[in-house]
Design a protein around this nucleic acid. Sequence first.
DNA 1: CTAGTTTAGTGCATCGTTACACCGGCATCG
DNA 2: CGATGCCGGTGTAACGATGCACTAAACTAG
Lengths: 361, 361
Amino acid sequence: MTRVTIQQVAAAAGVSPSTVSNLLNGRTNRMVPATKERIERAIAELGYRPNRAARQLRTGRTQTVGLIVPSVGNPFWGAFARELEVAALAVGCNVLLCNSERDPDRERRYVEELWEDGVRGIVLCSSLPTLDHLADIVRRGLRLVTFDRPAQAGDPEEVVSVSINNHVGGFLATSHLTELGHERLTFVSGSLAAVNRTGRFRGFCTALEGADLDPAAMPTWTAGGGAPFGDVEAAQVGRQAAHDLFSGTVEPPTGIVAINDMTALGFCRGLRDQGLHVGKDVSVVGFDDIILAELYDPPLTSVRQPISRMASLSLEEALKEDDREPGRSVLLRPELVVRDSTASPTGATAPVVADEDGVLQ
Amino acid sequence: MTRVTIQQVAAAAGVSPSTVSNLLNGRTNRMVPATKERIERAIAELGYRPNRAARQLRTGRTQTVGLIVPSVGNPFWGAFARELEVAALAVGCNVLLCNSERDPDRERRYVEELWEDGVRGIVLCSSLPTLDHLADIVRRGLRLVTFDRPAQAGDPEEVVSVSINNHVGGFLATSHLTELGHERLTFVSGSLAAVNRTGRFRGFCTALEGADLDPAAMPTWTAGGGAPFGDVEAAQVGRQAAHDLFSGTVEPPTGIVAINDMTALGFCRGLRDQGLHVGKDVSVVGFDDIILAELYDPPLTSVRQPISRMASLSLEEALKEDDREPGRSVLLRPELVVRDSTASPTGATAPVVADEDGVLQ
DNA sequence: CTAGTTTAGTGCATCGTTACACCGGCATCG
DNA sequence: CGATGCCGGTGTAACGATGCACTAAACTAG
């Protein structure tokens, strides 16, 4: 019923609480092996588990990292959260998950709260253009890792970032379409007020230029600057875009690059609303390669993020204590996974060489 | 830089720390209004926030509830986690999220850890047949709410449950198919070693009997008893089922009831692998009505769980302190949402009356 | 006017762990 | 032989909030 304390362990092992504490904190060089074993036996026999609250009160630290995502309702973030938890578990950490819904206020409140709760670090999945709202907390020592938001000029230099190269991602997606022969493309996104998104968009433009197409001539569809960035909303945005683009008087595009898979899936749904066929009438490329991309009909061509690797890297950085390497920015390379939602504009099947998994080499 | 403590507030307000503590804990009847105001002003001016660790060490309580889900990678759980967080936020609580991956060991470890960390209650999304592995912790006072797992005989009586009526859900899904004229149905699931799953299956059988069909004559497809219950796995299970059922020599079913939407979507994918069309060649009903059900092609008929309502109820129960009503089991009624993945076996469109939203009245 | 009661607020021990300062004893050194 | 250094380990004062037991002052009743 009542918890086992360090004193009871000490008594059982015939040493002082200090010595037990020393063992617990890895200062084993301060004791003879026999003592160490006695203590370890006592711990095992009594089933002792250190009291986190007491420990934290004393040291001001936790074994917890905070994770702030836009919304776990979005399968991409759900999958990432899961990966981060796996990584954390492996090093004896906990993950405290928060949904910001991409609201800067809520984001700040969560960061403050986590900081006051003494988390070791925070992995922030946000792509707000500035980190000004968090600058003071970072200066006060918070270990902040931004995920999918490469470091920007003006960021506090202590901030580390882990991200894919969004420019390359946007480029891969787009040049896949131009290589298939598409010449009228549209970039579909909710608000572009996020640095990962502008990166993807720049990749889109670069690829167009490489194919001798004029980015300025391509309509870009973005939702109003409004807030919605969740799971439902992302799909809604895509669906709305399809309605807008294919019901007007202007000539619609033959290829679409969507900001993420949920938007892409929503877009596909919108196309169907109008009797159009994805992969035949219109080619669609998504981004993130969530599990559902492969299950969809047609299976969705998408830019894959190596979330498992990114999760371990993020965690590592969030836990790093001493050898700070300020402003470090890790950029991983995304992969294009070609499936059936893309084809040449004539309607022929994509003549693309890919391995069994659909990964373009 | 350094935190504001209760002593500083007390000094600023010209009272003792005890009085500030009294205010903080709602014992305002013990002080004159003027004092109360002075303290409140001091708190605001200094930006004081109570130290959680200290508070917890002293009281043994937290403002945190634990949430254990099989895997947030599954959009259903992601959506539920988000709803629970919303509910918690509204009453000033935090949610600590854990993925059990449906591993009883991991589940138990998490429960223990959360309990030792002093959470106020735990919402456990698990449907293991017994709670034996948690019985002792519950007896020691843990406030446990099981989600989507109605109370079973043999459960510790302190446990409360919040769930839909799975029997009704299975019944709704199945009778929808029989009413369409289907006579060869298959229930597709990963392991059935979970009470919510057996409930759905019983509903399946009841509906068959109601339609004068023999449940025993219907093949049930279940994956081996193995562990996998995650997001990837659920879809994989469905896909495998489709391969098995439609490649053998036995006459395949015309209608499928899947244990959840991920499995249903995987199943649809598997049908396509073999050139079959969902909603034409085979009707498929899912369960949960995740956001992707509507986006899918064809949009998936599914049994909707009222997750928002369930989340608030779960939270409420998890926080309830005193008036324990042991063994309470809340069962909500699920809704069938009819979309295009189901039709009569001839291939005609479903002649079902539904409102604009697809909700069957 | 005194004894008793209520009001408004305080003192202090305490939760379990940590880490710095310290200490006795033994070995080594010049 | 006395001084020095190291080894293995201990004593103790916090960390910040809580809440019981207590009290001084004001008020009430008889």
